[in-house]
Amino acid sequence: MNTPIPDPLGGPADELAAVLALRELADRLEDAAVERALRAGWSWSQVAEALGVTRQAVHKKHLRRLAGTDVDLRRRNARV
């Protein structure tokens, strides 16, 4: 017996879509906010502390995409 397909709009569909939209928004907001903070002179450690994660975690997630940009390398690599 096939399960009927629920309406894609309203009720649980809206709640589940909100989860997806919020995840996507959080990811994009993190990318933009981390980049802005580094451009403003924040160190990786400070960004990590503000996000509540380790410096290594921020590095792993964002270093590669920001390598080769005009983000200040000295500040970027500073530990404090």
């Binding site: 809206d14 709640e15 879509a17 909100a18 989860v19 997806l20 939209a21 919020l22 928004l25 994009r28 907001l29 990318d31 933009a32 981390v34 980049e35 590669r64 995409r65 920001l66 940009t69």
Partner: peptide, 23 residues
């Protein structure tokens, strides 16, 4: 609409500009 259903107003696109991921 999905964001609004969770009570979140959409964020202006210019605040979401970032260097793309290279993965």
């Amino acid at each position: 609409n999905s964001l609004r259903s969770a009570g979140v107003e959409p964020i202006p696109a210019e605040r979401l500009v970032s260097t793309g991921r290279r993965s």
